[in-house]
Design a protein around this nucleic acid. Structure first.
Lengths: 171, 171
DNA sequence: CACGAACCCTATGGGGTTAGTAGGAATTGC
DNA sequence: GCAATTCCTACTAACCCCATAGGGTTCGTG
């Protein structure tokens, strides 16, 4: 009874994805790239408003992201007229890992714990090693790529080869 | 002024972490390991109840995880007395990536999109390459490690070396 | 053919995070 | 002092995560 035929394709669509890059993180990286690009041209401060327009980001939301980037010491800010934001260091000295950690906390967590702090009984005994490896592989990409690399489109060799291997595998 | 010193350590504790392994995923892997171990010993089915007890997991919650593993074709189930769950394939032919995808969907997503489907304007132009690389590095670890590897504590070379490099780096 | 063991399924709920908006207080260059 | 701009707090609506409850359904077994 209750004839539960589902007609349309309602699509449960469970998307959590182990590795989920949020809008917040995405925006942070793009804002940092815009700042890196601007820094190459002049020493001017960029306002959050302008930054938002250049990358089509929601202005007020971006403001809160910039706040976190400042607290993390990746950008410096100035209030008032001619105020705005500047990169705190050269773009070659800021990695994607720095940006990620500023807005997302630690790169990897297992149920709220750092990978190396996990512990299991019995048959799952060797699991922590995998968690650590996963974090480490992430770090090799994110900590190995700087904002400057991204501006130049010139990724480190091991990162570029990961892109290639993915293309060969077909996605 | 307005003396807004916060006395206690309220701990903002923003833990989202780019790569967050949820309880659900953790449980799924541990249940699969328990099944892999049992399969080595006999051809019996394991009940969800017993599985839960062996790895100290919440029983009813685990049931819903097992359902997803069955839908994904990683385990088969039997109802009634002497029912329960068995691995659908040998433990050496089931990777952690298989388990992750069964309960978490695609390994990596950027704002709900597959890494290779992202697109950016201007200064962020090369970002998709990084997203793809990140997904690929994750895949190399998770798709390269089987349940059997974990039971044996004998991880593939490139995974083991990631663990080592992490220890050298101090976490 | 009943009985009971076990899976199967849906509903529910509390707590948390995410994405985003709004409004104003604080600061600072001019 | 004025205006620009950051800084901060509060708020909302939607969604996800973990978990529990209560059955319905299937199927070996005696």
């Amino acid at each position: 009874m209750t004839g539960r035929l589902r007609e349309g394709p309602p699509r449960p669509v469970r998307h959590s994805a182990v590795l989920g890059i949020s809008a917040r993180t995405d925006y942070a990286v793009r804002a940092m790239l815009a700042l890196a690009d601007a820094r190459a041209a002049s020493a001017e401060h960029l306002t959050s408003e302008l930054l938002a327009r250049r990358q089509s980001l929601p202005h007020k939301f971006l403001e809160s992201v910039l706040l976190e980037l400042r607290v993390a010491g990746l950008v410096t800010s100035r209030r008032g007229p001619r105020g705005g934001y500047v990169l705190a260091r050269p773009a070659a000295e800021i990695s994607l890992g720095d940006v990620f950690r500023a807005v997302d906390g630690p790169l990897a967590e297992v149920r709220g714990l750092r990978p190396q702090d996990t512990a299991y009984e019995g048959v799952a005994e060797h699991l922590p090693a995998v968690w650590v490896a996963v974090r480490s592989s992430l770090s090799e990409v994110l900590d190995g790529t700087s904002l400057q690399d991204l501006l130049d489109g010139d990724l480190p060799p091991h990162v570029a080869s990961l892109v290639d291997s993915s293309e060969r595998a077909g996605g």
